[in-house]
C-alpha cells in the first residue's frame, strides 16, 4: 500500500541560519499511529509545519495521498487536521462558533450533527456556548482537537497534545486517538512523554538536530535495541565480583547486596543459565531475582547521545 505521507530530502534553513531539518526522508503508512520523538528544537514542529503548509521548505518534496503539498495544496490540506503545540485560540469566541468556523474554513458544508458528535466525544458539548477564555487549559486543548476534527481529516497531526494536560484527561485523549485510528485516521504525534509513544505508537521516529536518526516499528525497536538486566539480591553482601565470574561483566549494586547482569535479548544465548550455574558453584547464595527491560526512554536517550 502507498504511504499516505511521503517526505523526500526535506530540508529547512530559517532566515536566521538555523538548520531545522536536514535531508529528512520519511514515509507514513495509512492508518498508523506514528510517534515523532526528539528533544526540544530537534525539528519536530518544523516538520509538521511544512507538511501542513505553515512553513516553507528550503528543499525537498512532500506528498500527501499522492498529491504534492505545494502544487496541490488544496487537496493535501483538506485531508489534514492539525492540533498545534501552543494553546492558540480566539479568546472571545464561543466553542461552537469557532469549531463551526474551522469546518467552513476547510471548505466543508455545514454539518451541525458532526460538530455535535465531535464536541460530545471531547466532552465539550456542555460548553458549546461558553467563551473560550473561560475554559480551562485542558478544555482548550480538547477544543483545538475538536477544531482539527471539524472537517473530518484523514490525517491528524498532534503536536505535543498532552503537554500541560492532567493524567485522567491524558488518558481520555489517548482513548480518543485510538478510536480515531479505528475509523482509519492516520495519526502523527510528537510527545515528550516517551511512555506515551511506547504505549500508543505503531512506529517511532527519532529526530535530533534536524536529522531523522531512526524510524522503526515500535515492537522491533524495543526488541532490537532493548537490553535486559538481571538483578540478583544476594544473601550476603560482596566486596567485589569474584574472579570466577569475571567473564560475565557483572556489576555490584546496592552496597554489594545486588549482582547485576546485563544481556542482549537479541542473542540466541543470553548466558543466564551458565551464569546461574557459575554463581552456585562459586558458593554465592541469593534470596531473590528480577529482570528489567530498557524502556524506550533509555533507547531514546542512548540514540540521541550517540547522534551528537
Amino acid at each position: 500500500m502507498d504511504p499516505i505521507i511521503s517526505i523526500r530530502n526535506l530540508s529547512k534553513t530559517y532566515a536566521t541560519g538555523l538548520e531545522a531539518l536536514r535531508n529528512v526522508d520519511l514515509d507514513i503508512d495509512r492508518g498508523e499511529i506514528f510517534a515523532l520523538l526528539g528533544p526540544n528544537g530537534a525539528g519536530k514542529t518544523t516538520l509538521i509545519g511544512i507538511v501542513c503548509g505553515i512553513v516553507n521548505a528550503t528543499a525537498g518534496t512532500v506528498s500527501v495521498d499522492g498529491f504534492d503539498i505545494v502544487r496541490d495544496y488544496r487537496k493535501t490540506r483538506a485531508r489534514i487536521g492539525l492540533v498545534p503545540q501552543e494553546l492558540t485560540t480566539d479568546a472571545f469566541e464561543s466553542v461552537l462558533h469557532t469549531v463551526t468556523f474551522s469546518r467552513g474554513l476547510f471548505g466543508k458544508p455545514a454539518d451541525p450533527a458532526h460538530i455535535e458528535r465531535v464536541l460530545r466525544a471531547l466532552s465539550l458539548w456542555d460548553k458549546r456556548d461558553a467563551r473560550i477564555m473561560t475554559l480551562s487549559g485542558g478544555m482548550k486543548r480538547r477544543l483545538l482537537i475538536a477544531k482539527a476534527l471539524a472537517h473530518e481529516p484523514d490525517i491528524l497531526f498532534l503536536d505535543e497534545p498532552t503537554a500541560g494536560v492532567d493524567v485522567s484527561l491524558r488518558q481520555d485523549m489517548w482513548n480518543l486517538v485510538r478510536r480515531m485510528r479505528e475509523t482509519g485516521v492516520t495519526i502523527i504525534l510528537t510527545t515528550h512523554y516517551i511512555e506515551e509513544a511506547e504505549d500508543m505508537a505503531d512506529r517511532i521516529g527519532i529526530i535530533n538536530g534536524g536529522r531523522l536518526i531512526l524510524v522503526e516499528d515500535k515492537a522491533s525497536l524495543m526488541l532490537k535495541l532493548g537490553r535486559k538486566r538481571l538483578v540478583l539480591h544476594l544473601a550476603e553482601p560482596l566486596d567485589a565480583v569474584p574472579p570466577a565470574l569475571a567473564a560475565y561483566d557483572l556489576q555490584l549494586g546496592a552496597g554489594g547486596c545486588e549482582l547485576i547482569y546485563t544481556y542482549d535479548t537479541r542473542k540466541e544465548r543470553t548466558g543466564i543459565t551458565a551464569l546461574l550455574n557459575d554463581i552456585r558453584e562459586a558458593g554465592i547464595g541469593f534470596r531473590d531475582l528480577h529482570t528489567t527491560q530498557s524502556s524506550l526512554e533509555d533507547i531514546f536517550v542512548d540514540l540521541v547521545k550517540r547522534s551528537q
Partner: peptide, 17 residues
Amino acid sequence: FPRFTGTIYEILSAPIS
C-alpha cells in the same frame, strides 16, 4: 489579531489560496 494570538496557523494550514 490572528497573527498576535497565533490562530493564523489555522488559516495558513487551510485549503485556501
